[in-house]
Amino acid sequence: MNKSLFERLGGREGISTIVDNTVTNHMENPAVKARFLPLKDQPQRLAIIKSHTIDFFSAGSGGPATYTGKDMVTAHTGMNISPGEYMHVMDDIFKALDQNGIDEESKKDVLAILWSLKGMMISK
């Protein structure tokens, strides 16, 4: 029996670690860190963003989760994210997947999800 992407990512605990690693990667990435470093001084806001991200990826990968955050267009409107920034963010996510030993098939599934969201986030 095939495991869901949620299970292959390590369930909620694994996704939580991947999100933590991704945020750290964003804060260290010269191309996008200016967007993320201010969150260090806003720990409550950062915790909410991480929680929503964990719920979003848990629900979207077949896990028992309910996402209650904003839709992607609403959440990213006004941010004017460039295509290049989006690619850097994707690179940071894949670095986190590698840091957590996620297999190639699962990484391809994550790529499909991220690619499907691209138009909802870029230049909004």
Rank of each mutant, 00 (worst) to 15 (best):
M1Q: 11
M1G: 14
F6N: 06
F6W: 14
E7I: 02
E7L: 05
E7G: 05
R8G: 02
L9D: 03
L9K: 05
G11H: 07
G11D: 09
G11C: 03
E13R: 09
G14H: 09
G14F: 02
I15E: 11
I15H: 10
I15A: 12
S16Y: 05
S16W: 09
I18V: 09
I18E: 03
I18L: 13
V19P: 00
D20L: 00
D20P: 00
N21W: 02
T22C: 04
T22E: 04
V23N: 09
V23L: 14
V23F: 15
T24I: 11
T24K: 15
N25Y: 10
H26F: 15
H26I: 03
M27Y: 05
M27C: 12
M27H: 08
N29K: 05
P30H: 01
V32R: 10
V32A: 03
K33W: 03
K33A: 10
A34L: 11
F36Q: 02
L37R: 08
P38H: 10
K40G: 04
D41W: 13
D41C: 05
P43R: 08
P43W: 09
Q44H: 13
Q44T: 14
Q44I: 13
Q44K: 15
R45P: 01
R45S: 04
I48V: 13
I48D: 12
I48S: 14
I49A: 06
T53R: 08
I54P: 01
I54C: 01
I54E: 00
I54G: 00
D55I: 01
F56P: 02
F57Y: 07
S58H: 07
S58T: 06
A59V: 00
A59Y: 04
A59H: 03
G60E: 08
G63A: 11
P64F: 05
A65L: 05
A65M: 10
A65Y: 07
T68H: 13
T68N: 12
G69F: 08
K70G: 01
D71Y: 10
M72E: 07
V73E: 10
T74D: 07
T74K: 11
T74C: 06
T74Y: 04
A75W: 01
A75L: 03
H76S: 00
G78C: 05
M79W: 04
E85Y: 06
Y86V: 00
V89F: 11
M90Q: 14
M90H: 09
D91K: 12
D92C: 08
F94N: 11
D98L: 14
D98S: 15
D98E: 15
N100Y: 05
N100K: 07
N100L: 04
N100P: 01
G101N: 11
G101Q: 10
I102F: 06
I102M: 02
D103M: 01
D103V: 00
E104K: 12
E105K: 14
S106Q: 04
K107N: 02
K108E: 15
D109Q: 15
D109R: 13
V110Q: 03
V110Y: 03
L111V: 01
I113P: 00
L114Y: 03
W115M: 15
W115P: 00
S116W: 07
S116H: 11
L117A: 06
L117I: 01
L117G: 04
L117K: 10
G119S: 05
G119H: 06
M120T: 06
M120D: 15
S123H: 13
S123A: 11
K124T: 04
K124H: 12
